[in-house]
């Protein structure tokens, strides 16, 4: 095809024209292919062929571990500044980890995946912690004066607020459990009269711990901690102020509604007064039973009859009647 084309080309007058103008329109000196490709020889018998040398892979020299060049008194906090998986070439310690059969040495630190798995504290050496503490010291403020002991700060801050922060390995920092707020305070820190105290205890119910004399509010119904804290403080305030309100129906509390026996409003007081004022005339000062007797009667009925209470009651009766 190409030879035919060349022949046609030669006949054309264009070629001469081009040669005269000096423009090379078409390649005239086509190099002829001298070396003809040899046919592959069919090798029926297995003749040993020349061993072809494989191309050698040029490899960059692997640098020796960095630990070889480490000074003995180097600054370790600079060599390992942040948490990182274990790397044998950076840690100049002859570590070994792994279980082997009896007598065999444990696998060394090189190519040891177990050492890479376990969390290490190489970034939290005592000098590193000291260094970091020094660095953040300038952000600290001195401890407030007057709050040195626990007794002192409990007097100024009677309400204890307990919240929990959760650290987790997740892309989110939110945790639903963090919304819970617990506030507690000693009941003795609140000022009550007898009615208010009784009503407050009725309002808080089992949130009052009798053994430790503390009231505890746990709130978790709002989605945020701030809202729960506000709600808990609201509950405390509302209960406290509500306990001082005397509703009109509270006056209709009969003896059957009383939760404890009170000497003042019972028949035994009238009976004791009757005995003490047996021979008193009209207009004389009435003798009231002594408070020790009243207390012992209350104890006898509230706590039940036991040996101690009965003996005490006997003593008090004897004392009162001068027997």
């Amino acid at each position: 095809m190409s030879t035919g084309l060349t022949r046609v080309w030669e006949r054309l007058p264009l070629k001469k024209q081009a040669a005269q103008s000096g423009i090379r329109v078409f390649s005239q000196q086509q190099p002829e292919i001298e070396d003809e490709e040899e046919f592959r020889v069919l090798n029926l018998r297995t003749v040993k062929q020349q061993f072809q040398r494989r191309r050698e892979v040029r490899r960059d020299p692997v640098t020796p571990p960095r630990t070889n060049r480490m000074a003995v008194d180097q600054d370790w906090t600079a060599a390992w500044p942040a948490p990182r998986s274990f790397h044998p070439a950076s840690v100049p310690l002859p570590l070994r980890q792994g279980f082997t059969e009896r007598g065999a040495a444990a696998p060394s630190k090189f190519a040891n995946a177990e050492l890479m798995k376990i969390p290490n504290f190489l970034h939290l050496t005592p000098p590193a912690i000291r260094q970091q503490c020094e660095a953040i010291k300038k952000f600290c403020s001195p401890w407030p004066k007057g709050l040195e002991t626990e007794a002192k700060w409990q007097r100024h801050f009677p309400v204890e607020v307990i919240t929990t922060d959760y650290l987790q390995s997740l892309p989110t920092i939110r945790n639903l459990e963090a919304r819970r707020v617990t506030i507690s305070l000693k009941l003795s820190d609140l000022k009550f009269d007898a009615h208010a105290r009784d009503k407050f205890l009725r309002l808080v119910g089992d949130r009052y711990n009798k053994d430790t004399d503390t009231v505890t509010f746990v709130t978790d119904r709002c989605p945020l901690r701030k809202q729960n804290y506000d709600y808990a403080m609201y509950l405390l305030t509302a209960c406290y102020h509500e306990s001082f309100v005397t509703e009109p129906w509270e006056a209709s509390k009969s003896e059957a509604d009383m939760e404890v026996y009170l000497f003042e409003r019972n028949q035994s007081k009238i009976a004791a007064e009757g005995i003490l004022n047996w021979s008193a005339k009209e207009g004389d000062n009435k003798i009231s039973p002594p408070p020790a007797y009243a207390q012992c009667v209350e104890q006898l009925i509230n706590e039940g009859e036991n040996e101690y209470n009965l003996a005490k009651y006997k003593e008090e009766v004897k004392k009162m009647l001068n027997v």
Binding site: K117, I118, P119, S169, L170
Partner: peptide, 10 residues
């Protein structure tokens, strides 16, 4: 003898 391959709090 060996530890976990995934370390997380989930």
């Amino acid at each position: 003898r060996k530890s976990w391959n995934s370390w997380n709090t989930s």
